[in-house]
Design a protein around this nucleic acid. Structure first.
Lengths: 297, 297
DNA sequence: CTCCATAATACGTAAATTGGTATCAATATA
DNA sequence: TATATTGATACCAATTTACGTATTATGGAG
């Protein structure tokens, strides 16, 4: 015969009431089975939990200790069920999120904050990394979801395009084209065209390079740039011009001008990616909870 | 249907083995009941704990959490049973001990240390107080056992005499009687007789006073002394003489001499006292574990 | 000394639990 | 395609449990 949760519960109520009939009533059973339950528990444990006569019922020292522990055990079972249920619903746990830096210019932070508010027991772990690393990390189970520039994906990775973003030309304020609001890329012929390093974001680099080549332009390879901000800063200093995502054309930059570009292909996709076999409800909640992104202007 | 310890145990083994047949073997049951047990547990919880096909068995995220908690719960039940059993045996808990200061000259400290060694999970709480306070504290459940000078006891307090101690006369080294080894109290006639305050230990004071009166002596009431050491120190300085427990006649005092006393009544009892209705096994262990005391010389 | 409140005991029954055997279903492998 | 492995399912028997009713035992209180 083993100790049961029921015995613990009965004993616990009994230890609060210190009265068999009242405790039995509270438990919606009659008094004899309650007596029996306690007796069996004591038999199993090998020592008395309560001293009782028809005049008083009181805990033994060992009973006091055991009642305390019983309460803890029952509470722990309860919280175990709750926590596990929350995990099962995707309301608790850890979720690792990868993102390319430019997501910070969109409303990823706000969206994640909103998700965090609606899922307070989920720990979001954020990793800034480029698209290639995110794909690797997904396959290695190091992240659960990535926010990337759309690229060809290996098997086992699903994706959803969140946004298609135009590229815009970035030139200094005093540039000959600065007064136009819309140009064709070929109009930039002869300019030094700056693009960040291919090693930093290969697919994106290749995309822009291909686009430039349709207009008979070549990126300048003498720069090893790691970040959009650097590109804009260099443009501002007259080092050259560039093609950048329109999300960058915010008012935080002065002395540079962003010009729309006519070419239809001057755009790229922002996508979220995840392992196709990842059925975690937490992930599903996140994917559903983050609808279209908007660019923060 | 409620969660059972058995279900937790089965699930726990399963979560370690990740293989139904092997886990069933380990549990000494056949495989089908194990499948059934897990299914019932999942039904009760409302979510899946394991994903399983004929090719693999693995924990869901919620299952991982729950397995962890289940282990904790089972461990807690185990330790609850152990700790409570120890308390029931008197091997764990708290025991408050009162004692009159002079017990420190006997081997109470060594005896308590021995008890502590054989009952490492019992916390001994020591309270130095006079006999009267100990009786009060016992009745108020503030202490469990007291070491006192034998006095009349109220109902509900049991006692056992541990030792009968002779009183000895204490005189300065240069005293006219110092060369004798044995005197009668009446030989001290005319000396200033010092006794510590009645308020400090009434019964003991009264006992000595009565003894002196049989020899037509009176204690000097101008001293308000709280401790035996003070009495001896005053004797040493020639302030008077005294009657003290023989346990004090140790070699740590110089320039004073302790003389045996002929009167048969020149003795008092050391006793342990406890509440008669206190059935705590811890107390019984202590009472049994502390046989006759010896005076430390 | 009787009564009253209360816990223990006796006993019967319905239900659940537990675990077995036999078999099925799914899937990877030879 | 046949086979082997493995978990799921169906079904049954035995046991245990859980609980109720009726009754008894105990120990203060009036």
């Amino acid at each position: 015969m083993a100790v049961t949760f029921r015995q613990l519960k009965y004993f616990l109520v009994l230890s609060e009431e210190l009265h068999f009939s009242r405790a039995a009533e509270k438990l919606n059973i009659s008094q004899p089975p309650l007596s029996a339950s306690l007796r069996q528990l004591e038999e199993r444990l090998g020592f008395k939990l309560m001293e009782r006569t028809s005049k008083y019922v009181r805990l033994t020292p060992a009973g006091t200790i055991f009642a305390d522990q019983a309460a803890r055990i029952l509470g722990q079972l309860d919280s175990a069920m709750t926590i596990a249920a929350e995990t099962a619903k995707g309301a608790a746990g850890e979720l690792s999120v990868g993102f390319v830096p430019s997501m910070l210019f969109r409303d990823l932070p706000a969206k994640l904050k909103a998700f965090q508010n609606s899922h307070p027991r989920v720990d979001l772990i954020l990793h800034e990394m480029n698209t290639t690393r995110q794909i690797e990390s997904l396959l290695e189970h190091k992240i659960d979801v990535g926010f990337v520039h759309a690229v060809p994906l290996p098997n086992g990775i699903s994706h959803k395009v969140l946004e298609t973003e135009r590229l815009v030309a970035c030139v200094p304020r005093w540039h000959r084209l600065a007064s136009k609001s819309r140009i064709r890329i070929s109009e930039l012929a002869g300019e030094r065209m700056m693009v960040f390093s291919r090693s930093f974001a290969a697919h994106y680099h290749d995309k822009i390079t291909a686009l430039l080549r349709t207009a008979n332009l070549e990126p300048d390879t003498s720069f090893h740039i790691q970040h959009w901000f650097t590109v804009v800063a260099l443009v501002k200093q007259g080092m050259g011009v560039s093609l950048v995502p329109s999300s960058l054309s915010s008012s935080v930059f002065s002395d540079v001008v962003f010009l729309e570009v006519e070419e239809r292909q001057a755009e790229h996709d922002i996508a979220q990616i995840w392992r196709s076999d990842n059925t975690s409800p937490m992930l599903q909640n996140l994917l559903l909870g983050l609808p279209r992104f908007e660019t923060r202007l």
